[in-house]
Design a protein around this nucleic acid. Sequence first.
DNA 1: ACTTTTCGTTCACAATTGTTATGTTTTTGA
DNA 2: TCAAAAACATAACAATTGTGAACGAAAAGT
Lengths: 243, 243
Amino acid sequence: MFNALIRKLDCSGFLTEVDRVTLQKVTSRRREVAPKRDLILEGDRPEYVQVVLSGFACRYKLLRGGQRHIMALLVPGDFCDLHVAILGQMDHAIATLTTCTTVEVSRSTIEDLTDNHPRITRALWWATLIDEGILREWLANMGQRPADRQIAHLFCELHVRLLSVGLAGPSGFSMPLRQVDLADMLGLTPVHVNRSLQELRAAGLLTLQRRWLEVLDVDRLRTFCDFKTNYLHLTPRVDGLKT
Amino acid sequence: MFNALIRKLDCSGFLTEVDRVTLQKVTSRRREVAPKRDLILEGDRPEYVQVVLSGFACRYKLLRGGQRHIMALLVPGDFCDLHVAILGQMDHAIATLTTCTTVEVSRSTIEDLTDNHPRITRALWWATLIDEGILREWLANMGQRPADRQIAHLFCELHVRLLSVGLAGPSGFSMPLRQVDLADMLGLTPVHVNRSLQELRAAGLLTLQRRWLEVLDVDRLRTFCDFKTNYLHLTPRVDGLKT
DNA sequence: ACTTTTCGTTCACAATTGTTATGTTTTTGA
DNA sequence: TCAAAAACATAACAATTGTGAACGAAAAGT
């Protein structure tokens, strides 16, 4: 059966066939979660680590004023909370955005992996470093670009990330995120997200209807928002997919 | 001699006396770097890892328009590029903001540490996870708060981080950053940073002169910007320092 | 001590983004 | 299939933040 986690970690180039089998065993107990459900709350000390296998989830914080800020988008293959093992306590919450399939991996399993499977450990470490790279890119994106380019940049990133787990076509992908979600990711208001989307449509850069995002000209969209793929650290194998 | 790296990693609670001695040995070859010098460039594949022992440095990216966005502030004790060992190539640059003392630790030394010193490894892992937590908080800060609170929040964070390496007093610390640097960190213009600083002064929350930041009432400033320390994952020992 | 450069301050004005509100479309669920 | 709810679209107006420029203060170098 298709397993986005394996597909993703495979991109690191560290795994062997044995590792893939090991990972397959570990990710067999699945769970369905409805949209807009919390998977973990700030302050939690979970006994297991969760992985998203299908659907979209997000890391977020709720600020005093009640505003939600989404700091990361979790797509199939992404770990939710690998860090809690060391830091002890969640400093942010995680919620589903769409219906999700997740697996829970117990902390002891993680310890076994890190103790006895050096290549898997290396791949996990690789994955968290890429997450960190994405955080940095989001910071620069929010800080330096106007709203329309921020949104375009987010779409470009999503496209590549979904390609790498086999969930996007060469020029389009399913986009179940609401405009409110985009707004909470970029620190904009839903109204302004809407305005900016209209501009992107008017500029002939993309269409977005019935939850499907079609990029009309990948190169033009990337140029428009100054998107470079280096921060995603694609290996040549995956890079080939990316156009 | 005082060593900010050891002091910082000690906050993780994982180190023993032997580990501290090991770290001391590894950080003995120091180097002075002038302000505004690049330590590493985007695309570099350095053979050694650098640690800041004194002064302030920053991670940054240069965007197409020539704008600089600072995605992280490196204070004494912080690692510059531990991740390059796995990702291979820098996806951002690092530069000094003030005069800095740094140490270069060869990649082989790092490998030795991770192979033979599990507690040090754990502490290093801990440090990078905290860096990630800081990135997430910066994202929420930029996304959801008005400029004056963003700046206040940044100051609150800096205060705690400097306290934890013994470089701040209970209500003030040396602040060598320029207004341009703050602007590039928060995605604001220097003019607006200046305006916002005036407001903070007018509100009686702080004074900032001759490169010294004095917080007039720590609790009031923290309330003002909704600052909570949880994302810094202070251990109780350090937490005691924080007021 | 003095000159030069960098940094900080302020101002008037412009652009982007936020607010509030209302109507329409799409999706969801009975 | 239809009603209800959620999401999207659009508009008028307000607030925050950006721009460009000028001047003063502080820091750096000779």
